[in-house]
Design a binder for these strands. Structure first.
Length: 274
DNA sequence: CCCCTATCCTGAGGGC
DNA sequence: TGCCCTCAGGATAGGG
């Protein structure tokens, strides 16, 4: 599942690959994934636009186009972006193919169709609420200890629910939320407002640390994340808890516990996390 | 505003 | 060999 490090990996490769390129033709095949506007409008209006740059906001990939237009892509759980030579074999469930003026194609595929493609003038996308309000970016200077304190101290929800709430912190998903809680020594099910000052500080350090490690390793390929060229990320081997229920904690040897928090499978160490 | 639950969606994997 | 069931989860709609 693409979270901040996986999306960042895609964005860092996508910028150099498509900046300056003009989109010459568009196929948007599957209804559902291409949400805004309807895909016929996208196919009619996107060609002719030149890509000026690519940025990330939370888990959203934002391609800046000419005339203040944007092509926004969310990969959902199983989405992929690739840049390939035109005519290369397509995978099943390819929802968007944007031909570029260098003979390559930007493609988006997504088996489960939880991903989204949005296009239009930035102001229109914003006014329509196409991208929901997103919280602080955890790898920026805006992610201060006091900002995180404010989020945690005012919520009675499980701490993991706060970490997963994109309107509060943008970019954490199930993998890195569990990893951050383990590194901080905090049980994911603890009520956020009951954490001690020291625990909040530990989380404030752990969140950027686990995300930066994921970015460094070009993402976690647990089952199906791939970068622009189809290569897996290397971070799965570094995971401490996610996907390791029943296996020994790498810190203390205790078999890792599995539970459900905020509706998500959650793995933690009974001994290391209190 | 706050929080929780159901829903979307397909393929992998287990049980028999 | 194959059918059926459960599970995976990011985001969001809707209920309390």
């Amino acid at each position: 599942m693409p979270e901040l490090p996986e999306v960042e990996t895609v964005v860092r490769d996508l910028g150099p690959a498509v900046a300056g390129r003009t989109i010459t033709a568009v196929e948007a095949s599957e209804p559902g994934v291409v949400r805004f506007p309807v895909r016929e409008v996208l196919a009619a209006q996107l060609p002719g636009h030149r890509v000026e740059g690519v940025a990330r906001r939370g888990k959203y990939i934002v391609c800046r186009l000419q005339r203040d237009h944007e092509l926004v892509i969310h990969l959902g759980m199983t989405g992929h972006l690739t840049v390939r030579e035109a005519g290369a074999r397509r995978v099943r469930h390819t929802h968007l193919v944007a031909s570029l003026d260098d003979g390559r194609e930007l493609r988006m595929d997504d088996v489960r169709r939880f991903g989204r493609v949005l296009f239009g003038p930035r102001a229109v996308l914003e006014a329509a609420g196409a991208i929901p309000r997103l919280g602080v970016e955890p790898l920026t200077e805006g992610f201060t200890a006091s900002v995180l304190d404010g989020l945690l101290r005012t919520s009675v929800r499980p701490v993991k629910a706060v970490l997963l709430d994109q309107s509060r912190i943008a970019g954490l998903g199930n993998i890195y939320a569990d990893e951050a809680c383990h590194q901080a020594g905090v049980r994911p099910g603890r009520r956020a407002h009951r954490l001690t000052r020291a625990e909040r500080a530990a989380l404030h350090a752990a969140i950027p640390a686990v995300l930066a490690a994921g970015v460094r390793d070009r993402g976690t390929t647990f089952d199906d994340f791939r970068d622009l060229e189809g290569a897996p990320g290397a971070h799965a081997a570094e995971l401490q808890v996610y996907g390791r229920a029943g296996q020994p904690c790498r810190r203390c040897g205790e078999p890792l516990a599995r539970t459900v928090v905020a509706g998500r499978t959650t793995v933690y160490c009974r001994r290391c996390q209190r």
